[in-house]
Design a protein around this nucleic acid. Structure first.
Lengths: 192, 192
DNA sequence: ACCCGAATGTGATGTACATCACGTAATCAA
DNA sequence: TTGATTACGTGATGTACATCACATTCGGGT
């Protein structure tokens, strides 16, 4: 299925758009391809776009003291990603986003998002719901962080996204869980 | 300043509403007063409303194994609070919300929010931005959780909300930071 | 004023995890 | 193929924090 159709079905779940409205909506997106390892947003730079993933897998991460990496999000197909803090506040990126695998995305500029939101009530509706889902997911992850130990979070992650296990290296999973790669290794080798 | 005016100024920061539009918007809110200790949303019950805080301080928390409490949010004046997961998905509450001090709030039902969002494009716009701010705050807190140690998070919390120090008991601050009250006590007594 | 429960301080001990250190296996590029 | 880089496994050791235990102080209700 091509990019346009994937986005259309994604939107249709929460907003009712006529074909003409969707065509107008879609006209603001720019398709883009990236190779494994390529950087999409890099820390310290300006951020103008957000990204809708068509295929592949990206990671959004933060590096502390030039040493430790923390992964905020794995972005899989039909997920949205960006440095939203920087994007909305027009500040420099504090995180980096790059590609774990080759990837295709659709780019939408901050300006165009606001433009179509003001033009199309249903677009505004869609973005409200999308942000809401993100908010709930973030709250849930925060709670999981406080409440569960590392093993529970590891198993939670794998039941939620089983494809990650074979797709991404273990040290990235550790960086998502917020533990050292050594600890993660011991964890899942111990209990078999 | 009365509740209506507080809400009006709060909305005006992100959405342009005429006086008539705001009056219509406001007509869906029900004022409500609570005493210190009163429960607003309790775990396991249905959730129909979200709450805009006019005065006082509430806490949204989760209790694990009937033992440990984790505070998801302190809700201060002009903040919104609810169990949004339960509210949007029409499921039972997984968290409890109660009052740390006497409090006044404005209640808005889920149904009415969706109604005014579909009636008024600017209302939809407002709620998109509000949710967005919540999402960013949640992301930031998650990052802080992974990145900083307990003392850094403690100091971060107090510079962000200095009023909390005298307003809420220390064990609640510990429950927000995700550490035991003993550890928190030792932390700020040690470094003076 | 008085009492009782809640909030707070502080020591002793256990534990999950980080960190350091080193070795092996897998992957990739010339 | 081969060398180099990256991923992964595993032991030894240190540390931040939880937990338990108990003492003290504070604050609200009768």
């Amino acid at each position: 299925m091509e990019a346009k159709e994937i986005l259309k079905q994604h939107i249709a779940k929460t907003a009712k758009l006529s074909d003409e409205q969707f065509d107008h909506f879609f006209s603001h997106f720019k398709p883009q391809s990236y190779k494994k390892g390529q950087v999409v947003i890099s820390e310290g730079q300006k951020v103008d776009h957000e990204y809708f993933v068509i295929s592949g897998c990206l990671k959004a991460f933060f590096i502390n003291d030039e040493i430790k990496m923390y992964i905020l999000q794995f972005a899989m197909p039909t997920w949205w990603t960006s440095d939203y803090g920087a994007l909305y506040n027009q500040t420099r990126a504090t995180i980096t986003i790059d590609c774990i695998t080759d990837a295709e995305v659709l780019c939408l500029s901050n300006h165009d998002r606001e433009k179509i939101c003001s033009e199309l009530h249903q677009a505004e509706h869609f973005f409200r719901w999308r942000t809401n889902r993100g908010y709930l997911a973030s709250q849930k992850r925060l709670l999981s962080f406080m409440n569960n130990d590392t093993r529970a979070r590891y198993e939670e992650l794998l039941t939620l996204y089983p494809e990650l296990y074979n797709l991404v290296p273990k040290h990235l999973i550790a960086a998502y869980l917020g533990v050292s790669r050594e600890t993660l290794s011991r964890l899942y080798n111990a209990h078999k």
